[in-house]
């Protein structure tokens, strides 16, 4: 179903346990960095990569080997930059289930993701998602 193939299976809300941690790596491919700059209408030719390029769904889904239920949407996002990430670097990605709760009948999932290069964390991203909110 859908116009674009989905690379990850849908997870169930019950699959997530607070404190669970998932890992992967994420390569900051120069071509992907250039595509982001095109889409965001930013000047190209970067030496370092802004968080908007890597604080994305792919490293999250790859780490969890699943995606959030279709129709899940963003409610909040906090990002803290600790250092610069270089174009071409490969970042370690640690995804932690920080919180899950139900409020006003809506399920919320909070995921904290720490991106690190070989030496140190470069960014911590915390996203709150409304689980399966925009569904048919």
């Amino acid at each position: 179903m859908g116009r674009i193939a989905q690379d990850f299976k849908d997870a169930a809300f019950e699959d997530f346990v607070c404190g669970d941690v998932f890992h992967t790596t994420h390569h900051l491919d120069p071509a992907v960095v250039a595509e982001y700059d095109r889409l965001v209408e930013a000047p190209g030719s970067r030496a370092t990569v802004p968080p908007w390029v890597y604080c994305t769904f792919l490293p999250m889904f790859r780490a969890m080997d699943s995606r959030m239920k279709q129709g899940s949407i963003h409610a909040r996002q906090t990002m803290t930059v600790h250092g610069s990430a270089a174009v071409g670097a490969t970042l370690d990605v640690e995804v932690r289930v920080a919180e899950k709760y139900e409020r006003a009948g809506r399920r919320h999932l909070v995921l904290e993701i720490v991106f690190s290069d070989a030496e140190r964390p470069v960014c911590t991203s915390t996203g709150t998602y409304l689980w399966g909110y925009a569904t048919r």
Partner: peptide, 9 residues
């Protein structure tokens, strides 16, 4: 395609 945000919505 670039980000993995290919959800149907």
């Amino acid at each position: 395609q670039a980000s993995g945000g290919t959800g149907h919505i």
